[in-house]
Nucleic acid binder design. Sequence first.
DNA 1: ACTACATGTCGAAATGTCTCGACATGTAGT
DNA 2: ACTACATGTCGAGACATTTCGACATGTAGT
Lengths: 113, 113
Amino acid sequence: MHAYLHEHLDMNKDYSRAIPEAWQHMSRVFTALGDEHRQRILLTFERGERLNVSQIVAVSTLSRPAVSHHLKILREAGVLASEKLGKEVFFWVNKPFLAETFDNTRAYLEEHL
Amino acid sequence: MHAYLHEHLDMNKDYSRAIPEAWQHMSRVFTALGDEHRQRILLTFERGERLNVSQIVAVSTLSRPAVSHHLKILREAGVLASEKLGKEVFFWVNKPFLAETFDNTRAYLEEHL
DNA sequence: ACTACATGTCGAAATGTCTCGACATGTAGT
DNA sequence: ACTACATGTCGAGACATTTCGACATGTAGT
């Protein structure tokens, strides 16, 4: 379990008890992408593409409220970003955030697990 | 949406429609790690540590059957590996698989999204 | 074979998440 | 102000997951 005795001589001795920040972000990303509908929504986007809600609904098998629900979860997790332009709301992949989150998780894996 | 016209001149033109294999794996990993209890189980492990079920139950707030359920999901997703030794079943983090899965996802993000 | 221990499985209740119609909000043009 | 359109939200039913007690299996020692 948690030994509270580490070979590294840094100051963060109780680091093992707290869930690191990279995992806090990753937690929501995992939850957001754990659903197949939301994965399909994410994979709908091409490089740098911006899509409005109607376009996403068009390629989805779900109703508009259901898509809206999933988009909200993806946005709140930081996976997608959005901007309102006139009547429409455009969504796009928050690539920098995803890249950073995956990198942090990858680094944590290498370091601690 | 999916343009079916790519700038890369490779053979996989219908790649955009199929969910890539890296995502197939990631899908289960995301589902497995989308749950906070399962995240805590994963983070219980120290570097290279092996824990039996009783030890994991001891640090968890859940009952043994519940922990067993989560361990099954983590094992089937490939996050944890297990081995029976006598009466006990030991679990450990499947680090190579996780590393590969994260790397693949990271690469896919950089390439396609 | 019997006991003690470790773990897995089953099933039903509790809990959580998803879904869609109906309604609300907000924007642009006439 | 009115109409048309795009999107968000609410709530109740449908659906999926989680949870734990009770039981089953399997292993080691006496």
